[in-house]
Design a protein around this nucleic acid. Structure first.
Lengths: 252, 252
DNA sequence: CGATCGGTTGAAACCAATCAACCTTTGTGG
DNA sequence: CCACAAAGGTTGATTGGTTTCAACCGATCG
């Protein structure tokens, strides 16, 4: 049975990796065969995190990059007073840990929002492979750059003056990411708490709660605790921007 | 006179690069001699931008990374409606252009806030050098990672619930960056407009203007148009956080 | 089952956005 | 060189959306 099991595992790996951020570290770069195997070999045994478990903390030494295989995580920073600011939510296929590249120490923290499975990419081994497979280097740069662009989206969201626009944009973006995972983009199952959403957007939890209710009244959403169904994607998209021309954002 | 001029130029180059983001692309990596020369050779002729001139626009093809030599720039994104969100202000020694690494197209725009001089690093040539000098690769990754961490600071700023905290944090951070440039960290000369500051922080210009006035009344600042003197750095630091324990940010 | 946590809703206070007026600086052209 | 226009900035009055404070509900968990 061993060969069959191996084939099965490989197939599953291929399948699960097809929606993975690492996918582009191989195929688009024209990598296959030995190179692909070599990259596969750098992926350490998967780790499983329970809800609330930390993947890394501030000041942890930089050991690896991580890819979410299943579940979801949040990354955040905390100041001396314990104030938290959530930087991102990470869904399956998304990569995290880049914050530590600069100093070799993590400057943020990563916590599982639910039971999650993580692929660990020890950076030392990854460096070795990328030095042997130059095409991988550019690919890795691309992935980091995507991280930068993703943060731009977060900044744009927070820059909106109306809380409703912020939440609409948040849900809209989440739906996009769900679809990219070949999930139903209209039936979101939010892994994060209302508190987390509020913090992510720079609001308080009551405001977020009220907005969910209001958007439900408007017929845009159907909210049931963590389960959010988007009834009117068109209206949701419209809510992402104010109709009135805002003086603040309008270009001079 | 030619040799003397060459020596002078080299010295000036060394001096101007000592406070440059690229500095760490050489020395800390233990690079010197030929390797350093090779890196220097990748720097294209400097460009000068007038106030309001664009360094790159959205959808421009990715040609190079840029380092501010003198002056200041802002990077921003614009949506279909023309709404702008400023992503960052770039002071001398700071690098920009990473947004295009992912897609080979710029997804943001860069505009000079005042007459600025720019070092251009053609990415093709840079790639060639980094492939020959592996140590440079890790250094370049470090620089991008710093970009990520810098954006985290922006997010934390925007996440603050009080506009005064946001502006205080902005000025505090700016003072830090001025000091890193060996400038006076208490005598800021803001290259950006009030409008830009407001947009960067997610506020409206009137609020920013009022806050400048209020902080002047409090004796924290001395404001004179673009010139801001920090009279009480201690008070400014205190204004960066609310005294009252906020429910939103406090960790659960 | 009680306690705790997460979430919702209401009422009130407050802060920032909005609208408006005005001032200063800058730049342009007669 | 002056006049005027345009842009940038400040200040006031008002509105309104979000925060704050509070109570309550439901789910989860030990």
């Amino acid at each position: 049975m061993e060969p069959a099991a191996t084939v099965l595992d490989l197939n599953q790996l291929r399948r699960s990796c097809s929606s993975c951020a690492l996918y582009e570290l191989c195929l688009p770069a024209g990598i296959g065969g030995d190179d692909l195997d070599r990259l596969d070999a750098t992926v350490k045994d998967k780790r499983t995190l329970e809800r609330g478990a930390m993947l890394y903390r501030e000041n942890d030494t930089f050991e690896a990059l991580y890819v979410v295989r299943s579940g979801a995580l949040k990354t955040f920073v905390q100041n001396e007073a314990g104030d938290m600011q959530i930087l991102a939510f990470h869904l399956p296929g998304e990569i995290l840990g880049f914050d530590a590249l600069a100093t070799n120490l993590h400057v943020s923290q990563a916590e599982a929002l639910e039971r999650s499975s993580i692929c660990e990419l020890p950076y030392a081994k990854l460096q070795q492979v990328t030095s042997e497979v130059p095409a991988l280097h550019r690919q890795l740069m691309r992935v980091i750059s995507r991280e930068v662009v993703e943060e731009h989206r977060h900044l744009v969201m927070m820059g909106k003056q109306q809380a409703q626009e912020q939440l609409a944009s948040f849900l809209h973006g989440l739906a996009d990411r769900y679809q990219r995972l070949h999930r139903d983009g209209t039936a979101l199952n939010l892994p994060m708490s209302r508190y987390d959403i509020a913090n992510y957007l720079g609001l308080v939890v009551e405001t977020v709660s009220r907005l969910f209710s209001r958007m439900e009244e408007m017929g845009v959403l159907e909210v049931n605790r963590k389960s959010v169904r988007i009834l009117r994607p068109d209206l949701l998209a419209a809510l992402c921007r104010t109709d009135t021309v805002s003086r603040r954002n309008d270009v001079g």
